[in-house]
Write a protein that binds this DNA or RNA. Structure first.
Length: 864
RNA sequence: GCGGGCGUGGCGGAAUUGGUAGACGCAAGGGGCUUAAAACCCCUCGUCCGUCAAGGACUUACGGGUUCGAGUCCCGUCGCCCGCACCA
């Protein structure tokens, strides 16, 4: 009699209700067990979850459930990164309030996440736009301010003309805003900064200790911080037109060893001296203007010619008396790095070489490759930046590059013309945003007292509800009364800062808030001490720099202000791959997969639009995106196949760090397996010993073999889950399910007991992955407990070691046969047995055996 | 240019970290069950030679090397992906 198919959608609702009503996943801050904090990057409440979320949260959930079963007190929370521009855009388009739009979206997405059956502690949920959260964030701001870690400065900022806001350097990609894609303009305005550069060195050094972070992310952060050791040098300036106060020019170099090869100095178009000179020099002003139009894309930079403007000023070489170098303004010198001025050594820097060639400046090689004669060494049309010995350089001659650097640094420091300096590419983090939907910066501007922090007793500075979005710009500026306050210092009328914080501030400490989400302080220190750092953080690689670097800074800043006791927030980081799908298009229009019907296989595969029957072009496989419409709605999958099916598919086949291709075939494969397991339980039950049957003293060979397979699989699945190698764990579960299925036909001493054990282990092994099906099976197996509360089964180590071993036998490295022999056989016995094998004798062709290599339990290699 | 990674059947991918290459899944082919289809079950499935046998040769992008033994380590070549980039 055939059993009914497992009705996943219906049963999943049931089990979700059971878990929720019994508070199974609530984490206690007071627990004797070891803790494990598993966190996935929290979502922006856009309105609907997408497959990327499904993948991310499934991985975290498998780990969280596994750790729970392994006896850890697991914290696995969820929240919402809820401030940000889309809410304001929606407000503009739909005449709704950002708060309503956001909280409606949260409600919808919460329901979707719950339908996935995640083992989350929902009691700790919060949104960053909750007043309680941004209130605490304002406290952090004030504490940072007191410590000098937040400051206000007039800065050149990246202004996004479309989003009408300032962007951090990290948010400008190829000269365009990371969200809007608009060309970013440079503006000067007062901005609040977080002093991330304070920790530049430490953020860099500590990367070395993050052994459970991907190498790639660490490298990216290291490059972003961009530390370079060099020499800050002073060149005396002279010239008729030298403005007062500019007796010296500071330049930074990492190649001080080439100082004797210097033939010019160059200023950035943005250098203060350049701007000073340009005031009285229209030609220079025009040149500066021209430079400001150079784009920042790679292609443009390679195309743009090195150009300069001779200021007529001269810089005196600090070590060659009487040697004067011309001072140019050059288009390739960046203001944002070093001092915004360089000394040019054309022989050993390609840019300087091109520049010197154009302006006919001397090109003197001072580093000579080993084996070359300084007198005859020819650069051959390009700068030489390889190793060598110093020449043409007075007291440096004959030294290596490193020796020369050290020597020069010492000499320059002695004569007061230079000092060793470490420069960073990293800039301070500008956090002011001219937007409404963010955390207000708790500062009041008073004409008499300047920028005055809002006293803590007056916090929170709440966002006003009565705002309008009918015109561009910041509604806080336009609000009739919100700005007007009395100065907390002198009591006279003053105005609030109308900027809000970059939303990356919100996400820089949410992981800490989860430890004590109801605390009256940003975090309860005791709770943070217990839970932090996050043991495993999982999210997309796109946050490799921004979010992950800011969070590392925040942990340090919060430690400096007494809020935390850990410097590194995330002990383990895993960056998962994207979810991709085929694209479909018809006459230039993208079509959703659900609008397309596929016929045929392989080369014969054709696609048709369901509505019209028209043929559709099958395009490349790309990341699921709204623009390409290659989206599959998680809701559709969950409501038709079940959450377990979506979860199992996400974990199968593709290694988690790589992209996964979502296919209909893969989904039905996952669904098939669920039904197969369901039937397997049904078939096994009549053959399995009843619950609680004592373990027999001995087992027949078939039962023994089944038990060995079960325990070996159990051991491997555990290892693979811990290593986040879910695809391998899945494969092992498949394999064991098949072994178990074959074993149902076998009998013998202890078989019934072994079958029960096998089925139970199978269910427990896929439990973290398909938790609803597992609960359902657990119940059918005769338990009235929850599988979610069961400990991870214990591996019987004895079963992992077989009495016999099967090893390959090679002749001259080629496999000829295999040999099954007692595990404890001596090398001599193995050798003797191997040499008797017929295929071995044949392969030897009568040649004498020179040597036999026996690696116990691995291999035999007969060398002839 | 700099940095990181990758290259294994028709496809996604395994491979105890130097020890039987191709686990597991998908796709495909054959068979069973069925009036039929779906579902399900069983078998085959890297390439080539050989009768679809016995057996053998080749095979982890390509070319070398180290080693008893290389997908794994080293050198070189080719190709792909990602990140950064006029950073002095």
């Amino acid at each position: 009699m055939a059993i009914e198919r497992y009705n996943a959608p219906a049963r999943e609702k049931h089990w979700q209700h059971v878990w929720e009503s019994r508070n199974v996943f609530k984490a206690s801050n007071d627990d004797k067990r070891p803790k494990s904090y598993v966190l996935e990057m929290f979502p922006y409440p856009s309105g609907r979850i997408h497959m990327g979320h499904v993948r991310n949260y499934t991985m975290g959930d498998v780990l969280a459930r596994y750790k729970r079963a392994k006896g850890f007190n697991v914290l696995h929370p969820m929240g919402w990164d809820a401030f940000g521009m889309p809410a304001e855009n929606a407000a503009m388009e739909r005449k709704t309030h950002p708060a309503k739009w956001t909280y409606d979206n949260i409600a919808a997405m919460r329901a979707q996440l719950k339908s996935m059956g995640l083992s989350l502690d929902w009691s700790r949920e919060f949104a960053t736009c909750d007043v309680e959260y941004y209130h605490q964030q304002q406290k952090l701001f004030l504490d940072f301010y007191k410590k000098g870690l937040a400051y206000r400065g007039i800065g050149k900022v990246n202004w996004d003309p479309v989003d009408q806001t300032v962007l951090a350097n990290e948010q400008v990609i190829d000269g365009r805003g990371w969200r809007s894609g608009a060309l970013v303009e440079t503006r000067e305005m007062p901005v609040w900064y977080f002093k991330i550069t304070e920790y530049a060195d430490e953020l860099l050094d500590a990367l070395g200790d993050l052994s459970r972070w991907p190498e790639k992310v660490r490298t990216m952060q290291a490059n972003w911080i961009g530390r370079s050791e060099g020499l800050l040098m002073k060149y005396a300036l002279s010239g008729d037109r030298l403005p007062s106060g500019w007796q010296e020019l500071e330049v930074f170099t990492t190649r001080a060893d080439t100082i004797f090869g210097g033939s010019f100095c160059a200023l950035s178009p943005g250098h203060p001296l350049t701007l000073e000179l340009a005031k009285s020099d229209p030609e220079l002003a025009a040149f500066v203007e021209e430079c400001s139009h150079i784009g920042t894309s790679e292609e443009e930079l390679n195309r743009v010619e090195k150009k300069g403007f001779n200021t007529g000023l001269a810089a005196t070489h600090p070590l060659i008396p009487g040697r004067k170098l011309p001072v140019f303004v050059a288009n390739f010198v960046l203001m944002g790095y070093g001092t915004g001025a360089i000394f040019g050594c054309p022989a050993h820097d390609q840019r300087d070489f091109e520049f010197a060639t154009k302006y006919e400046l001397p090109i003197t090689p001072v580093v000579i490759p080993e084996g070359q004669d300084p007198a005859t060494f020819d650069l051959g049309g390009e700068a030489y930046d390889g190793p060598g010995r110093i020449a043409n350089s007075d007291f440096l001659n004959g030294l290596s590059i490193d020796e020369a650097k050290a020597e020069i640094a010492q000499r320059m420091e002695e004569i007061g013309k230079g000092e060793r300096r470490i420069m960073y590419r990293l800039r301070d983090w500008g956090i002011s945003r001219q937007r409404y939907w963010g955390c207000p910066i708790p500062v009041i501007h008073c004409e008499a007292c300047g920028a005055v922090p809002v006293p803590e007793a007056q916090l929170p500075v709440r966002l006003p509800d009565d705002v309008t979005f009918d015109v561009p710009g910041n509604p806080l500026v336009r609000h009739p009364t919100w700005r007007q306050v009395d100065c907390p210092s002198c009591g006279k009328p003053a105005v609030r800062d109308t900027d809000t914080m970059d939303t990356f501030v919100d996400s820089s400490w949410y992981f800490a808030r989860f430890c004590s989400p109801d605390s009256e302080r940003p975090v309860d220190l005791e709770a943070a001490k217990y839970w932090l750092p996050v043991d495993q953080y999982i999210g997309g690689i796109e946050h490799a720099i921004l979010h992950l670097l800011y969070s590392r800074f925040f942990a340090r800043a919060m430690m400096a202000t007494g809020h935390l006791n850990v410097k590194e927030p995330f002990a383990g980081l895993f960056t998962q791959g994207m979810v991709t799908h085929e694209t479909y298009s018809r006459s230039g229009q993208w079509l959703l997969p659900s609008e397309v019907r596929i016929e045929g296989e392989g080369d014969q595969r054709r696609a048709f639009e369901i509505a019209t029957g028209e043929p559709v072009e099958i395009g490349s496989i790309e990341k699921m995106s709204k623009s390409k419409k290659n989206l599959v709605d998680p809701d559709d999958i969950i409501s038709s196949y079940g959450a377990d099916c979506a979860r199992w598919f996400m974990l199968s086949d593709s290694p988690p760090e790589r992209d996964v291709i979502w296919t209909e075939a893969g989904v039905s494969g996952a669904s098939r397996f669920m039904q197969r397991v369901w039937r397997l339980i049904d078939e096994a039950l009549p053959k399995a010993a009843p619950v609680g049957t004592p373990k027999p003293q001995s087992f027949g060979p078939d039962a023994d073999a089944l038990r060995r397979a079960a325990h070996k699989t159990l051991a491997r699945v555990g290892q693979n889950i811990e290593a986040l190698r879910f695809n391998v764990a899945v494969a092992q579960i498949y394999e064991f399910a098949s072994t178990l299925h074959s074993a149902l036909g076998k009998t013998g001493p202890g078989m019934d007991w072994a079958i029960r054990e096998g089925v139970e282990l199978l269910v427990q092994m896929f439990g973290p992955m398909m938790p609803h099906l597992a609960e359902e099976c657990w119940e059918r197996l005769g338990y009235n407990t929850l599988l979610a509360d069961q400990p991870w089964p214990t591996v019987e180590e004895a079963l992992l070691v077989d009495d016999t071993m099967t090893i390959a036998v090679q002749v001259n490295g080629k496999r000829r046969d295999e040999l099954t022999i007692a595990r404890d056989a001596s090398k001599a016995e193995v050798e003797a047995a191997a040499l008797k094998l017929e295929p071995v004798i044949r392969a030897l062709e009568g040649r004498p055996v020179k040597k036999v290599i026996v690696v116990p339990q691995r291999i035999v290699n007969v060398v002839a």
